[in-house]
Amino acid sequence: MEKKVKETTKQKTKSKPQFEPRIVVFACNWCSYPAADAAGINRLQYPANVRIIRVMCMGRVDPGFVLKALVMGADGVLVSGCHFEDCHYSFGARKAAEQYKKLEKIVHMLGLEKERIRQEFISAAEFPKFAKVVREMVEQIKKLGPSPLERGALYKDQKLESEIIEEVAPVTP
């Protein structure tokens, strides 16, 4: 029974034409989000693997959000905001960089590839950079393959869990 399940999942992955990474982008309202808009206005083409979540400032991006995205199975997370000197809130980007250093260490320690997360400073004028970074990131992650935490399997996998629970008979101490 178990074997069969494994086989079908294998087939499933085989029949998938190509691995399409799912990448979360946090972009600040003042620089990187408008840069993404400008990439659109200028019709710069980039792969459709990213979903942009707008925040007011990069400083708002709690490392906890990035880790949660990874837990939920994101193949990559990009945190993008203003250059230090352009930061709308003057200190937010600097603080974000501080937090990001911690995050990098944690992600490294957990054994995830460092390329899965990325911090970028992209001003509103640097829309080609935005498109470039997205292209690079998609390519890099395609090379790495799906996240080891694929599809939020760890988050909600009710069936598997209940099986485990049944397997183990409670032991009275």
Binding site: A36, D37, Q45, A48, A131
Partner: peptide, 13 residues
């Protein structure tokens, strides 16, 4: 934002 972040940047797909 399905224009600036979507239809405009994925015109070929």
């Amino acid at each position: 934002n399905i224009r600036d972040h979507c239809s405009w940047v994925h015109q070929n797909d």
